[in-house]
Simulated scan of single mutants.
Amino acid sequence: MMSSRLPDSPDTVAASALPPLMRPLPSYLAARQSNPVFPAGRWITPTPDAPVIPPEIVRKALEVLQSVVGAEGNSGTMIVHRGYLLWAGENVSHKGHVWSCTKSINSICLGLLWDDGRCSPDDLAARYLPSLARDYPEVTLRHMATFTSGIHLEALSLDPGPPNFAVGAAMHYSQELDLLAYILTRIAGEPLSELFRRRIADPIGMSPAGWEWKSVNTRDGLPINGGAGMPENGMYMTAENLARLGWLFANNGKWDGRELISKRYIEHACVARVSPHTPMHDPADWYHQLPGRYGLSWWTNGVDSTGRRLWPSAPDNTFAAQGNNNNICIIVPEWQLVIVRTAQDKVIDVALFDGVFKALSETPRS
């Protein structure tokens, strides 16, 4: 089949030379669906005429993903586009520890309480836990959710020691979200697992047997679900359930027309809230890639101090719940896309997922 094209001119830039998101998007990503699909029970597979990513493109993206992840490959992977299930590995119904994806779920509870008018990210933490007033009088819930509070907290403890640094002076990816979970529990007056179940998990059809949020301790007569995501107290969840959560967030907090969490919270929490020039408390630690790319306990497609986005081939407003050992739920609202992977196989450089976005956004050859 012959094709025609305009001749090159000094003012014409070849499409292949453009950054990925300056190229024309394939139609299956560029056009939003006015009535997205929401699974009432089982996930819905697309009909032949559904406006979704073509199978051959999905296969290429899965090949890229397989090449960068660990031994479990794509067995715990799901790809959801416009609400349709395009791919599910054989282990997506296995309930496993999702590590620091727990942090984002803890942040969701903050969002629910904010929506209810019971707290705000800028509230002082000591307002809800007066014992913090001595060492941490200026720390807000936002500082805690972004790891810029300076709070020193040992693993599996809810009793902080003296500050690591002055509030806002650095970033320290640490256990302090367990303490934030304790504060949110005090505000809610109930375990966060119950708040999450009633307000989010049940309405979007998450299987009750497919998730469990363990507790770090009991205070004030209430179990304190861990906010940091350690094995002893974090969230355990199937990929199927995590994908439902991602699809809720891809639709600005609405599930089949019903708002479960506000668009205000999502737009506030799921964009970068840590300056790219924020120093790390421990310069040798792994989290050097987070300043400029971290929201309220969500990973974002923000820009680091070198000016580079985490995923250059994805839209700027892409964000993710991310955990150790290749556990991740990536949400691309602009493409109505959710990619989930659960596993326990390998520490990964999250930037490598950019190859998956690149494969998905390349126009198929005719």
Rank of each mutant, 00 (worst) to 15 (best):
R5P: 12
D11C: 14
P20Y: 05
M22W: 14
G41M: 10
R42D: 13
W43Y: 15
V58T: 12
A61I: 13
V64P: 14
S75G: 11
M78N: 04
G83N: 11
L86H: 10
A88E: 15
N91W: 08
H94M: 09
K95Y: 07
H97E: 02
T102D: 03
K103L: 02
K103H: 00
S107Y: 00
S107A: 04
D115S: 04
L124Y: 11
V139C: 05
T140Q: 09
F147I: 00
A155T: 08
A155F: 04
P160Y: 10
G161P: 13
P163Q: 10
P163Y: 09
F165Y: 15
A166M: 06
V167W: 11
A169T: 15
A181Y: 12
T185R: 13
G189C: 08
P191I: 02
L192T: 08
S193H: 08
F196L: 11
R197S: 08
I200T: 03
A201R: 08
G205A: 02
S207W: 06
G210H: 06
T218Y: 14
P231M: 02
E232C: 04
G234C: 01
Y236M: 03
Y236F: 13
T238F: 05
T238P: 04
A239N: 07
E240L: 09
A243C: 03
R244P: 05
L248I: 04
N252P: 02
G253R: 05
G253I: 03
G257S: 09
S262C: 03
S262V: 01
K263R: 14
Y265F: 12
H281L: 06
N301V: 01
D304L: 01
S305G: 06
G307V: 05
R308I: 01
R309Y: 00
P312M: 02
T318W: 07
V338E: 01
V338A: 04
D345A: 04
D345P: 10
D349M: 12
L360F: 01
E362F: 03
